[in-house]
Nucleic acid binder design. Structure first.
Lengths: 360, 360
DNA sequence: CTGAAAGCGCTAACAC
DNA sequence: GTGTTAGCGCTTTCAG
């Protein structure tokens, strides 16, 4: 492996000079620069990342810790999120370190990654209302950015989908279709998004003159199977719902199957909605009415927010490594969000979109 | 951040001694060891991973490069694979670096990761019959382990599911159910597993006295949508198939929907099989007959094979960092496979299992 | 414009 | 047993 020293010997210069020539310092003679660069090229020199990192005391790596119990993390939804993160990270010259933790040792993993100086910051997702990870990272003063907020609005960067707005869309949609007996199937309420969505749907229905009956709410579901079981219980109720709101698409799929098994025509006898719009949603039978989130893009934005934060902490200027235009807002993401995010507390609220299909 | 030097000053010893005490060298006095260890503990010392790695010229990191065009990588199948890799890697004290590449710059990414000395080895998946990644890594002499082999049996470690055996199971199953007009929907034939499966199914059907007609084979599909479209074409054929073999579960889901849309009763008028047994397969309507692969475990095994290889290259003994028993074969994986793998060329063939459900 | 020297934090060879 | 010296490969003062 060719090192700076090798080049230095070859061009009869010091290692220092070679280093500076390579990084294009202004105080190196043009000739030296070109000789050094050519030689480096010719010898196939590539800097040793480890050495660079040790020296500048930064890892250029962002970490994400995933639960091994893949409950809900196995969704396509999540691969997309990860892809968004990875793509954007590499755009900025950062590596993505993925670690897997059991529930029991989650904090330990974070601690290990921090103390071993293996990452410069973390991405968190699926925040809890009271999130020990966030408490830990906050108290440790270590940079992170979350997809989702916590109950007691902390002062950390995050992106949050506007669950309240989304539930408003769903409520209006269902009510406009004439439904009044409406049910919800939700993940545990300890999860922030699940809590927000449930409270929101209650509020919006109330606003529209409808009460969400307690026995119309099933809590603690993630998977299709669980969604199915919960829906069966709902449908076997003496006064069954005419509409079921699944808090994610998989749950909704389960509810659709349950409806079918009870002899109901989905979209007519029973309306079902989902959340996320995973690719399969459009191809399910019937196609699922759901809330679309630009999840890949969200992954990218979370990274930007994090890097922006890390840099500001270091007193650096926030500077996209590659082509800023490739990153900055397109499609459904508001242009200029980055500026907004930087100015305000790096806390972003994203408006998702209702996709109406045949399941309602 | 507390360093060896800090400890050294505190205990009035040299940095060297502290280092050796901490790593439990035999030539340090017991007292020194205990003083050093206690002080380290007390001061909250954690070694700087970067420094350690620079010094021992190894990154303790394994890399995996994923295509950003998530075609088929967004499947649950894949998240599971990744989880298996990550879990096992951390068990052995390795980090998992995930990079995303566009098709065009894939090799460039590998090169960059190698030359920048950012990983000690790679995991590859979804191998091609002629795989440029494998050619590159082989010629670069860089360690890797693949899930899947290539056409011209190269001399590198890999794990392969026994596609031929699996297709034999499917062929026998369908034929025993009385089918003779059978169709296949496959990913591109450039992909090794797709090629193997197609050739195998042909051979097995032939063995059972059935010819797979050319117009009964649709090639180039990954997604549910593509599977659907292909199945529609097959069913609109003047002599439509009575059984469709999807080369992955998503394709099979598409085929099921197509059958339904053509008014066929799945499992009766039309049999459909899949491959992989993603969680949803059991909950689709009807539940899907498919081939199960212990994909998470496979991810783990691929890592072990890789680490085994890396260590052997370094002349080290292969030594699981944690509890070997947690890793070694359980369930459907043959016990003692690791030994076998080490002795033979680190090339493993795994027998998948047929899960019969109502779609056939 | 260039180089010597120092140091990032750690490990290892070699004395004493 | 323990310390000195050297070095991993790079960047960054600071002299000249």
């Amino acid at each position: 492996m060719v090192t700076l020293k090798d080049i230095a010997e070859r061009v009869n210069r010091s290692v220092t000079t070679v280093s500076r020539a390579l990084s294009g310092y202004s105080d190196v003679s043009p000739e030296t620069i070109s000789v050094v660069r050519e030689t480096a090229e010719e010898m196939g020199y590539v800097p040793n990342t480890l050495a660079q990192r040790l020296q500048k005391r930064s890892t250029d790596t962002i970490g994400i810790v995933l639960p091994v119990s893949s409950q809900g993390y196995a969704e396509p939804f999540f691969s997309e999120f990860l892809a968004g993160i990875g793509e954007t990270a590499s755009l900025f010259g950062y590596d993505l370190l993925v670690a897997y933790a059991h529930d029991s040792n989650e904090i330990a993993i974070y601690r290990k990654l921090i103390t071993g100086r293996r990452v410069d910051g973390f991405i968190l997702s699926r925040t809890l209302r009271q999130d020990p990870r966030i408490e830990f990272l906050t108290s440790a003063g270590f940079p992170f950015c979350a997809f989702g907020r916590v109950e007691d609005a902390g002062d950390f960067p995050y992106i949050e989908e506007d669950g309240d707005y989304a539930m408003g869309l769903i409520a209006e949609h269902l009510v406009s279709r004439g439904h009044s007996r409406i049910a919800c199937i939700c993940p545990p309420q300890s999860i922030m998004f699940s809590h927000v969505r449930l409270e929101s749907i209650k509020r919006h229905l109330k606003r529209l003159g409808i009460t969400l009956a307690p026995d119309m709410v099933k809590i603690g579901c993630f998977t299709q199977k669980e969604g199915y079981d919960a829906a069966i219980q709902l449908l076997d109720n003496p006064r069954p719902p005419t509409a079921v709101i699944g808090f994610n698409d998989l749950i909704a799929f389960g509810a659709i199957n349950a409806g079918k098994d009870r002899g109901l025509k989905i979209g007519k006898d029973l309306a079902v909605t989902g959340f996320d719009d995973i690719p399969m949603a459009a191809h399910y039978r019937p196609p699922l009415t759901t809330i679309r989130q630009p999840i890949r893009k969200i992954g990218g934005m979370v990274v930007e927010l994090l890097l922006d934060y890390i840099r500001s902490e270091n007193g650096d200027q926030a500077q996209p490594a590659v082509n800023p235009d490739e990153i900055a807002g397109q499609d459904s993401i508001p242009r200029g969000w980055m500026e907004t995010a930087s100015r305000q507390n790096r806390q972003l609220l994203l408006r998702p979109e209702l996709i109406v299909r045949e399941s309602t």
